[in-house]
Computed example of a mutant assay.
Amino acid sequence: MKVVEEPNSFGLHNPFLPPTHRLQPKASPAPASGPAHFLQLASKCFSYMESTYKYEFCPFQNVTQHEQTFRWNAYSGILGIWHEWEIENNTFVGMWMRDGDACETRNRQTKVLLVCGKSNRLAHVSEPSTCVYSLTFETPLVCHPHSLLVYPALPETLQRKWDDLEQSLYEEMVTKQGYEKKLREIFEEATFFKSTKAAQSEQKNKLQHQEFESLGKCNKEYQQLSRDVQKLKDLLTQHGVSYEAALLEDSEDKRAIPQRVTETPARTVVPKVEIHKHGDTGLWNDSP
């Protein structure tokens, strides 16, 4: 008997899987950003095995999880899509991967911690709270004490903005709260953080489409609407009114609404008034 081994290619676009079984991301990854030397990892992926699960971290792309069994319904899912950096004390300390697969009432998300190591590798995976994962990524790219500083990663224009902001704080022209708000805006402009306005817009769209995230929810809503329509039909039947006739009558009533007739008002003659303005370059219309 020949045993067919599971393909060793994973991720959002696994060519060994039929289209209906490939992972479906809910959002596109944010633009790659951060320390210039760290961007060389943008086209690479790193794997980690724990028990029967394989985790794959693709910097600036996504984090996925794959169950390594031959069960027909082995789990494969997205634990997060590249979203933004976490910054503390002017230092990049981690990468947030959000908008993963649905988990109870929210989406899965993952924080990737960056630590110094001899080689690029995933060193540890945990789930500190339900649907929130923590990955530890070791790399020699962060071993230098200044390798993760935020200020050098900014373009000159934003560095000057930060310098001016620091001066304003020193001169007490801005409060600490105002300083933090302006600093976040600088980080958003550099795409280190997700734009607040963009995040609010995404949240609004999610709430509008929340009921139809899956085919099951859509069918459930359709069935409820069908029951409501049937109740309306039964109520009309009890009063001797045909449902189809009621729709036709409502349509005819709308067509019968007369259009608003407007009359042209009589022409009013406005007397000419002399106006003098310093620096007025406009033209005065002499005609009534």
Rank of each mutant, 00 (worst) to 15 (best):
M1S: 14
V3C: 10
V3N: 10
V4P: 04
P7Y: 01
N8W: 11
S9A: 05
F10L: 06
H13C: 03
F16H: 06
L17E: 09
P19A: 04
T20F: 13
H21K: 11
H21D: 15
K26M: 09
S28Q: 15
G34A: 02
P35V: 00
A36S: 13
H37V: 05
F38K: 06
F38Q: 01
L41T: 05
C45S: 10
S47Y: 01
T52D: 09
Y53T: 01
Y55F: 08
N62M: 10
N62R: 04
T64W: 06
Q65M: 03
H66E: 04
Q68Y: 05
T69C: 05
F70R: 05
W72C: 08
W72P: 14
A74W: 05
A74V: 08
Y75Q: 13
Y75A: 12
L79K: 00
L79R: 01
I81T: 03
W82M: 00
H83K: 00
E84L: 03
E86R: 01
V93A: 00
M95C: 03
R98Q: 03
R98D: 04
C103V: 04
C103R: 07
T105C: 11
R108H: 07
Q109P: 12
K111G: 02
K111R: 12
K111P: 00
L113T: 07
L113Y: 12
V115D: 14
G117N: 10
G117Q: 07
S119Q: 13
R121V: 09
A123T: 14
V125H: 02
E127R: 00
P128A: 01
T130K: 06
Y133V: 00
Y133S: 01
T139Q: 03
L141H: 00
H144K: 08
V150F: 08
A153G: 01
A153W: 03
L154T: 04
P155T: 01
E156K: 09
K161H: 08
K161D: 02
E166Q: 13
L169V: 09
E171M: 10
M173I: 10
K176R: 13
G178F: 11
Y179D: 06
E180K: 05
E180W: 04
R184M: 13
R184E: 11
R184S: 07
I186A: 08
E189I: 00
F193M: 06
F193Q: 04
S195I: 03
K197D: 14
A198W: 14
A198D: 15
E202M: 11
E202C: 07
K204W: 13
L207R: 13
H209E: 05
H209S: 12
E211K: 07
E213L: 06
E213K: 10
L215T: 13
L215G: 12
G216W: 12
N219W: 12
Y222K: 15
Y222G: 10
Y222Q: 15
Q223I: 06
Q223P: 07
S226L: 06
S226A: 07
S226R: 12
Q230S: 14
L232T: 14
K233V: 05
D234S: 10
S242T: 15
R255W: 15
R255A: 12
R255F: 15
A256M: 11
A256D: 14
I257M: 06
T262Y: 15
T262F: 15
P265S: 11
P265D: 12
A266D: 11
K272P: 08
K272G: 10
K277N: 15
H278F: 06
H278V: 02
G279E: 09
D280G: 00
D280L: 09
L283F: 14
S287M: 09
S287A: 12
S287F: 14
